[in-house]
Amino acid sequence: MTIVTVSDSASRAEGEGPGAPKSPAAELHRIRFAAVVRYYPVFLIFLIWEILSRLDLLDPMFMPPLEDVARTFYQEVFVTHELLHHIGVSFMRAGAGLGLAAVAGIGAGVLMGRVRVIESFLDPLISALFPTPKLALFPLMMIFLGIGDASKIGLIFLGCFFPIVINTYTGVKNVDKFFIWNALTKGASQRQLIWHVVLPAALPIVFAGLRVATSTAFLLIVASELIAANDGLGYLIMFAERSFDPALMWSGILVIAGMGFAVDRLLLALGGRLFVWQDNNK
């Protein structure tokens, strides 16, 4: 399994080419330029959006001019700091849910992959629960955990736990028998076997699970805040829609989209660094 997509490795290869500039500043400039070129369709859509609103072809109640959205964004971030508060709250909830799910999911996945009794107990449970849309459990979570942070963190935990535990279990189960045998004949204890062989060997697949879980966390944080919350980006979007403030609504949408994109890129970069040892030509 490769984490780095084809286009990623291609853009990296470009940077290492013989024509690559020498100075770091020039290199940074080049990367920025390359990013703009690569994502030109996004900028093109923004441009069309702006032109269409200027020509009065878009209903400002749905699609206000991009300039208004930018102004609102600036206001909310640098003057009132409102937006920062909502971003912080959403990030905290998503991060807490994801973090707990990572710890529990990796732990349970390793145990399932290594201990037969735990595997035969958890496997049917996970197979049965995995296809359930976790959002359907949100009302239940609110009954148990209230409408505050706890129910949202709980929901995100549930949603993220499954992709992480399933990938970890798969990864651990598929560790090459000969790696394990090699380690055992070199004197590794069971604990050392897990830390020094099973986990590093399974890590690329675990990491792919984490990436899926991260996008799930973003989905669930917005959905749960849309349903019931007093703050957070989902709440902000819903609040703006109800108070006929389309510019604010679009600020919220673009921020959440940008956050999702940034976090995913960050994970990709981290994966590329963690898995330099991988043979991508295999």
């Binding site: 000969f178 090699n182 380690a183 004949t185 070199k186 590794a188 020094h196 060997a201 040892w277 991988q278």
Partner: peptide, 27 residues
């Protein structure tokens, strides 16, 4: 298994996530 009985397998069973030096240092 015991490190006193060393094993070398056919297909490279050395650990791809470790450098050459780290592989030799494993035991």
């Amino acid at each position: 298994p015991d490190p006193d009985r060393g094993l070398v397998l056919q297909n490279s069973s050395i650990f791809p996530w470790r450098t050459v030096a780290e592989n030799v240092a494993f035991g």
